[in-house]
Simulated assay, not measured.
Amino acid sequence: MPKLRVGVLVSHNGSNLRALHLVSLQIDAQFEIVAVISNNSGSLGLAYARENEIPTRHLSGKPHPIPTNSTTPSAPCSSSTRSTWSSRPAI
C-alpha cells in the first residue's frame, strides 16, 4: 500500500512537525511528509523542513481583507497572494 502524502502547516517552532517527521522516518510509517507550509518566513518549522530536505512554501502573512460587498463569511485569497516555494534546503 502506498504511503499517505502529507503536508504540514507550521507557524512558529514546528514542534508538531518534528514529531511527525520522526514518526514518518520509521520503517513501518504509513505516511510521508511531502510539504511544509507557513505564513511566517522566519519559522523554525520551515528551517527544520529545509534542513531535512522537505519542500517548503512560505505564504504571505499579510491579511487579506474581506470586500465590503461580500455576503460570505470569508472571502477567498486574491490571486496576488505572494508565496515562495523551495524544493531543496536553503544554502
Rank of each mutant, 00 (worst) to 15 (best):
L20G: 12
S78I: 00
T84R: 02
R82I: 05
T72S: 13
R57Q: 11
P73Q: 10
P89E: 03
N52T: 03
P65T: 03
F31D: 11
R5L: 14
S86A: 07
L59D: 09
L59G: 06
A35E: 07
S83F: 14
P67T: 08
K62I: 15
S78A: 07
P2K: 15
P65Q: 12
I33K: 10
E51P: 02
S11L: 03
T68Y: 12
V36A: 03
A90C: 06
I91M: 06
Q26N: 08
A35R: 09
S60N: 08
I91A: 15
T71S: 15
S80N: 04
S24E: 04
V6W: 09
S86F: 04
T71M: 14
L4K: 15
N16D: 11
A19K: 13
R50P: 00
T72D: 09
K3A: 11
S80C: 00
P73E: 07
H21G: 05
G61Q: 07
E51Y: 10
T56E: 04
S11M: 00
T71Q: 14
K62H: 15
Y48T: 02
L25K: 08
V23P: 09
T81H: 06
G14T: 04
G42E: 11
H12P: 01
P89W: 00
L9A: 05
L22V: 08
R82F: 08
P89G: 14
I66Q: 13
K3C: 05
I66Y: 00
S80K: 12
I27V: 02
N39E: 05
H21F: 14
A19E: 13
N16P: 07
A75G: 01
N40K: 08
R18Q: 10
P55V: 07
L17Q: 01
S15G: 06
E53K: 13
N52P: 00
Q30P: 01
N13M: 08
S74N: 02
N16I: 02
L25A: 10
T68F: 11
H21Q: 12
H58W: 09
G61V: 04
P65I: 01
L44A: 02
L44G: 01
N40M: 05
L59S: 09
P89R: 10
S43N: 11
